[in-house]
Design a protein around this nucleic acid. Structure first.
Length: 416
RNA sequence: GGAGAGAUGGCUGAGUGGUCGAAAGCGCCGCACUCGAAAUGCGGUAUACCAGCAAUGGUAUCCAGGGUUCAAAUCCCUGUCUCUCCGCCA
């Protein structure tokens, strides 16, 4: 949520920034200001009347005053209803506004995304490379048919060496984050509706979430959980920045997505992901952004995978974010870079919605800044490892960084 | 799943319809005393919004949302959470 004061006081600036990610016909700041003016004038009258009622209720009233207050009470009720209506409308209008893109974020949509960094090179094969589905099946790492039997399309089962490789990745991440003093969180996988609103995933992603009969939804990214972790709290200033990382399985309906082009485990209903999250003082958040980005980058580089970093254009960032950078790993069979991590700074946009504050140097409560970055999602790394590190014999050489988590006979994955 | 108890300021805890934004204690901050500290004494100590240049004033907030009443921390309803007992438990 944007600051209403900012909208009122720096309307031009807000307008210009928002136009980087919105079309002019969707943007009407004057409507918001008008609603707020309406709200203020209603408040003025209403509070005066309430004040009068309070003064008359300090002691036992006379019969005459009771009659007067009865009438006043009716008026208050009517005006309160009116105020509530205006406030609701105002809240909806302001909640619909996305965050202000950071200054260095380009306007427009996906087409304006910009590759800003590349690591390694596209592997070239002097044989016909297999895709990851073929490799995973041949090497007995993943069982697709049984997963389909048990749960339907869009699921897979890690088995044997495949499960161990997946687990090794998670161990690799854990160790990486622990070394950087992030606190490990294992959150619940189900969360209630109000949390999904607070994290900003509702109402927008209602169709993309799985829902239980109890009205809970399955975690789609632990960003949802970490966002809510400190909801309605005033964080101890001396503990900032607070750094967390969480592991959870993530569940997404991915309704209407492109199964055909995204075979195997590129896009499924359930995948494993670790998430980094920071709560910082406002002045520290861009530094934290770089730190998270570097951390994610180092993890992929440590695996030796070819990947690139893209700075997303304003319209391609999710709406809560001032800036988002994607780390995308090369999938040879698809000839495309696929996101394995998304690093974002929400500034105070999420904190305002979740009401997470700290005491600033003036002793005033101020909203913190929140940042998050995947660290990392395995479901694209796994295919990338299989495809990028396959050999002409049909085996896969496991990245050195993962070998300490695996028995020696799995350092090269071979057909059994 | 059934029965019961509870939720009050940073904390403990009083308050069962009006003078209660809320006693008391603790904590914290300031001042006094002291060479300094402790102890003691005095004063202060929530948040949000609105009006105002400001001083200040107003409104709301006693888990949340509704309701009753001229008036609600207090009465009624619903929900959430916590605790106790019983049942169930792949």
């Amino acid at each position: 949520m944007l600051d209403l004061k900012l909208i009122r006081e720096e309307t031009e600036k807000v307008q210009t920034a928002l136009l980087k990610r919105m079309s002019p016909e969707d943007l009407d700041l004057q409507k918001i200001i008008n609603l707020d003016n309406q709200r203020r004038s209603l408040l003025l009258v209403l509070e005066e009347k309430k004040g009068e009622r309070n003064r008359s209720s300090k002691a036992k009233p006379t019969e005459e005053i009771i009659i007067k207050m009865k009438v006043l009470g009716e008026e208050i009720k009517t005006e309160e209803d009116e105020l509530n209506k205006v406030e609701l409308e105002l809240k909806e209008a302001i909640s619909a506004l996305p965050n202000l893109p950071a200054d260095d974020v380009l306007s427009g949509g996906k087409e304006n995304n910009q590759a800003i960094y590349t690591f390694g090179e596209k592997p070239s094969f002097d044989f016909t490379p297999k895709d990851h589905v073929e490799l995973a099946t041949d090497l007995g790492l993943i069982d697709y048919p049984r997963a389909a039997k048990m749960s339907g399309a869009g699921f897979w089962i890690y088995k044997g060496a495949g499960a161990q490789l997946e687990w090794a990745l998670l161990n690799y991440f854990t160790e990486h984050h622990n070394q950087r003093n992030y606190r490990f969180i294992l959150p619940p996988y189900l969360l209630n509706e109000s949390s999904a609103y607070a994290s900003g995933h509702l109402p927008k992603f209602r169709e993309d979430l799985f829902w239980t009969e109890d009205g809970l939804c399955l975690n789609a990214t632990s960003e949802m959980m970490l966002n809510n972790y400190h909801r309605d709290e005033i964080l101890p200033t001396e503990e900032l920045p607070l750094k967390y990382y969480a592991y959870s399985a993530c569940f997404r309906r991915e309704a209407g997505s492109y199964r055909k082009e995204e075979r195997g485990m590129i896009r499924g209903h359930q995948f494993n992901k670790m998430e980094m999250f920071q709560f910082t003082k406002p002045e520290d958040s861009w530094l934290a952004f770089e730190e998270i980005l570097t951390s994610a980058k180092e993890m992929i580089e440590g695996l030796g995978l070819h990947f690139q970093i893209s700075k997303l254009a304003a319209g391609d960032c999710s709406s809560a974010m001032a800036k988002t950078v994607d780390l995308e790993v090369w999938i040879p069979s698809m000839e495309i870079y696929k996101e394995v991590s998304s690093v974002s700074n929400a500034l105070d946009y999420q904190a305002r919605r979740s009401n997470i504050r700290f005491k600033n140097s003036n002793g005033k409560n101020e909203f913190v800044h929140t940042l998050n970055g995947s660290g990392l999602a395995t479901s694209r790394l796994f295919p990338a490892i299989l495809e990028q590190f396959q050999t002409s014999e049909g085996t896969v050489k496991v990245p050195v960084a993962l070998r300490k988590y695996l028995p020696e006979d799995l350092w090269e994955l071979k057909k059994k």
